[in-house]
Write a protein that binds this DNA or RNA. Structure first.
Lengths: 201, 201
DNA sequence: GTGGACATGTGACACAGTGTCATGTTAAGC
DNA sequence: GCTTAACATGACACTGTGTCACATGTCCAC
């Protein structure tokens, strides 16, 4: 988390820094990005940077949190719009995800260099395990009757599977430079497989 | 890939370097590892290192390849032993995976810092997309009748889903420091969900 | 055995990036 | 205007990288 000094900054200066950072993180992965470049682009001194953030990881996860928080709101709204239909929701969510062209290079870099720490952040979009409350909020929004699960534990694992497959498709979208339509078609195929089951009965 | 000079080295010296490298990569992630440390442990000079490898990534992927090649052989053997039963095979494969305690810290570091480039290597254990031949060899070994798919395309996506979920469980095993039994129980639960389908019919 | 030619080994070096800290600047309260 | 605390700055010591001119080893022709 950024330090207090960062939040004390005038909004415009915060925004400037955020934009500079997003630009740098669009051109390189976390380990390749240099603080030297960020401060140069943002027009602040090296020392100031360390007044605001612990280091570049701190800034990186701050940006990531901003992004996932927005996505999470969209997910909840979509779920409500679809009266709790999880599969319809996650399908629409994926389509809007691959169509969104804001911060494209930033997302590419994040996804192609995603580690467990980062992936956990994304999975928490639907599955805020750490807070029982959040999990309950979302599972109350969902129409559980349509899902082939009994109990919260199975529900939790179902969500984990869905998010894992979703993220992996999103990563592949970038890794293999898939066209939006192809990426969606692949994802829908996998969703159908997941819904109907992988084993022949 | 290592340079020719590395393969020209006497086997014992190769082994020494490999062991030194595995030790370093057990203590730190790819981006944190220092060549200085590797050469110190291996007792060679910095210059020599660059005669053998392009850089530390080169060495890292060399080690990774050695490991995944062994795993791949095991997977094929298990599949044959189980007369092509994919679910039984992957279940046994996962159990042997989390029970194997060789190179434990190395695997932890690899998994917790897995990027798309690394994950692709692992997924290719069953799904060597680049070589049509490999894919056919493996799909011939499998008893496809037990799987709820029609055609190679669906089969490909089924395998992708299975590997994705398997790897994610393996990562979580390390990330959350799960006991072997708990990890296996979680995985089996997810396998059953996958087999029977996520949607209620 | 000597010379030469080629392969391999070596560590000093220039360079790039990090995090810190002593010192300078600003602004608000009184 | 003075005080004080918060913020800004860039030089600095440190750590690590990849390279290169030179040293050493190896092998074969003569």
């Amino acid at each position: 988390m950024p330090k207090l000094t960062f939040y004390n900054l005038p909004k415009e200066k915060q925004q400037l820094l955020i934009e500079a950072a997003q630009q740098e993180f669009s051109n390189a992965s976390l380990s390749e990005v240099s603080i030297a470049n960020i401060v140069k682009t943002a027009g602040i001194s090296r020392g100031s940077f360390y007044q605001y953030f612990e280091g570049k990881e701190d800034l990186y996860f701050y940006l990531l949190n901003r992004y996932t928080a927005r996505r999470k709101r969209l997910f909840k709204a979509t779920l409500e719009k679809n009266s709790g239909d999880l599969f319809q929701t996650i399908r629409e969510f994926y389509i809007s995800t691959v169509n969104e062209d804001e911060l494209l290079d930033f997302k590419r870099n994040v996804l192609l260099n995603m580690t467990e720490q980062v992936e956990t952040k994304f999975i928490k979009i639907v599955n805020e395990e750490e807070s029982e409350e959040e999990f309950n909020t979302i599972s109350r929004l969902m129409d559980v009757d349509k899902l082939n699960v009994s109990g919260n534990k199975e529900l939790y694992h179902l969500l984990k599977i869905l998010m894992t497959v979703t993220i992996r498709n999103w990563i592949e979208h970038f890794a293999r430079n898939l066209a939006v339509e192809e990426s969606i078609a692949n994802y829908e195929l996998e969703l159908e497989l997941l819904k109907k089951g992988l084993a022949r009965s």
